[in-house]
Design a protein around this nucleic acid. Structure first.
Length: 266
DNA sequence: AAATAGTACAACCGCTTCGGC
DNA sequence: AGCCGAAGCGGTTGTACTATT
């Protein structure tokens, strides 16, 4: 038995939106807002569309603050940097670029940026990406971003990475720190087929200040930092360095932007 | 000019999470 | 505490457009 469909597919229109439909949706939303319910919105707006479809159309295309058009070099670098740090958290990456949507960023990465990135960083294909623990807001998390991991070169409001911030959990998020074992072991391949950990609470993790450079750090009850980092590499908080599999191997976490703006791994 | 291949982007699908009851 | 509906999210697919042969 499959999942019940969100709407009656036989009675709703699918495919490309017409200008008339766009106008109807836009007019309705500008007048009434969503009313907190997308499911019943199409009916009220006189549209024969699924509520989900309306929501997506609005969020990805019709919203007045959407920036259409090509990505700048600066935006390219932000995407590459954030992708290497947190994987395909498109909604979060998009949130760092005003006017860009997760769909936009995702499409742009999949069609253009990924090829460019891997042609410049052939070794990157073997990299693993961080998997993100769920967090419990009761835990007294507090961490600082190591200076070597700063992205403040960008003027795009990467506030979450502000070195000077000492971030506390956001009480609005009520996620739990569960399933820790999976995070140290699992990884996300940077190939097209690579899937991400489908867990939106990772965004809360970042908002809660747990992004620790390429890693996500939780401090357990005893105050011992736990690392869920880049491919499971432990992070040396004191020296702000990453350790490779060999004890004497040190991996520097910083990803940099070259003089010509091209992204590369150091 | 027509056919084919490649690219870009919009839209859909289904799983997970959240919040109200 | 558990259920259920709705929203959020990321992966995938569909399609229009452009370039190449």
């Amino acid at each position: 038995m499959g999942r019940a469909p969100c709407c009656d597919k036989a009675s709703v229109k699918r495919g490309q939106w017409s200008p008339e439909e766009d106008e109807a949706l836009k007019t309705y939303l500008e007048t009434h807002g969503t009313g907190g319910n997308w499911i019943h919105l199409p009916q009220k707006a006189g549209l024969r569309r699924c509520g989900k479809s309306c929501r997506l159309r609005w969020l990805n295309y019709l919203r007045p603050d959407i920036k259409h058009g090509g990505f700048t070099e600066e935006e390219d670098n932000i995407i590459c940097n954030l992708y290497t740090q947190m994987g395909s958290r498109w909604s979060y990456i998009a949130a760092q670029m005003p006017g860009r949507t997760d769909n936009d960023v995702k499409n742009y990465w999949n069609t253009k940026l990924k090829k460019r990135f891997f042609s410049k960083n052939p070794n990157a294909s073997s990299l693993t990406l961080p998997c993100v623990p769920k967090l419990e807001t009761n835990d007294e998390f507090q961490t600082q971003i190591p200076p070597t991991l700063m992205l403040s070169d960008y003027n795009s409001g990467l506030n979450a990475y502000d070195q000077s911030l000492s971030l506390k959990p956001n009480p609005l998020h009520n996620s739990k720190l569960t399933g820790l074992s999976q995070f140290g072991a699992s990884s996300v391949s940077m190939s097209q087929d690579g899937s991400s950990v489908s867990d939106s609470s990772s965004i809360a993790a970042v908002e809660n200040g747990l992004l620790h450079g390429n890693s996500f750090i939780n401090e357990d009850a005893a105050g011992i930092p736990m690392d869920f980092g880049f491919g499971g590499l432990p992070y040396d908080v004191v020296n702000q360095m990453w350790f490779g599999e060999k004890a004497n191997e040190v991996v520097h976490p910083t990803c940099s932007t070259g003089l010509d703006g091209d992204f590369f791994f150091c």
